[in-house]
Amino acid sequence: MRHIVLLGLCLLAAPAFARDCPPAGQTRASLQALKAAQFAVPDAAQKRRLAEGLLGCLSDPDPELRDGIAFEALSQWMRAGDFDAAALRALRDPLYATLDGEDAAGFGKPFAALALAEVARTDRIRPWMSAAERAAMVDRAAAYVESVRDYRGYSEGEGWRHGVAHGADWLMQLSLNPALERAQYPRILAAVAAQAVPRGGHAYVFGEPGRLAQPVLFGAQRGLLSAEEWDAWFAALPVKVGKLDRADYAGWLGRRHDLMAFLSGLYVQTDQSEDAAIKNLKPAIAAALRQLR
């Protein structure tokens, strides 16, 4: 099996970032063999070229190639610490370009965000980005989350899109990073607030409120805001639901549903947490819930 994988790798002669999937020199069968071999690629240079080639598969409509092979391989290699800073930048920058481009099928941007969460995690585990790069990533992550209007989650036969949840995972990794500056955290919270109560009133059914809660909890755990700042942030959320308007009854119900799910999940987690900083959020969350009655 490994001989098949290595043969496919040796045929790689494509430019650093190919949009084709499978990438040049690969076939569906060789990528399946790669997965069966647990993504083992002994040669570091070949692994880097293949990783760059697999970026194109993150936009592929086939969930096996997109999620089961491309993302899993990239995640495994990054979590194993297989790439240096230059290789990570060579992954990050094309992923940024994907977020800036068109995405007619709706898979490319959510999976670029999910892969960027893994890139952000590498910097959290072993810092390699400059302060300016990290600040730019915070802005990009927040802007992406705020921009999501495609709320499709899982579709039978197509797999996941899940743009809000994938963006929330990216924000979570940034919130966890001890190198994140306090001044950058409100930008993350603004993005969370934007999708905790989406203006259009889409009602979440794929666990998005729970994923959006994670950057909040980890930011609280790190003491990034004062109690007064948290009170103000939570108090502003029910206002986003708006007053009941019969002309927009479904939208109002959707916004209220989403915020109830977000706040209720946070309340349970703060109630059960043994971390004092997280527990201190409970009164502000309870006050926001009372505003929704």
Rank of each mutant, 00 (worst) to 15 (best):
A117G: 14
G223H: 09
V239T: 11
L50Y: 04
R92G: 04
G101F: 04
A165M: 07
K240H: 12
E72C: 11
R246S: 13
P283I: 04
E146K: 15
A40N: 10
E72V: 11
D139E: 13
L281V: 12
D93H: 09
A14F: 09
H202Q: 11
F206Q: 12
A29Q: 14
K35V: 00
A227P: 07
A142V: 06
A13E: 12
R199T: 12
G106A: 09
R256F: 01
S59I: 01
R246Y: 08
S59G: 15
D258C: 15
M78S: 00
I69F: 05
A132G: 08
D231V: 01
E133D: 11
A179F: 01
E158N: 06
R246L: 11
V148E: 07
R49M: 10
G207H: 01
A131W: 06
L12S: 00
S147Y: 06
D150R: 11
Y204Q: 06
A87N: 01
A117I: 04
Q221D: 08
L217D: 05
Y249Q: 10
D103H: 05
E274Y: 04
F262H: 08
E102Q: 10
L95P: 05
G159R: 06
R255V: 09
F83E: 02
A190K: 14
A97C: 06
F206T: 09
R19W: 13
A235R: 14
R290Q: 14
Y96M: 12
D60S: 13
L244R: 15
L176P: 01
Q269I: 01
D93W: 12
A203G: 06
G210V: 00
K240S: 13
P209W: 04
K240Q: 15
M172F: 14
V241P: 02
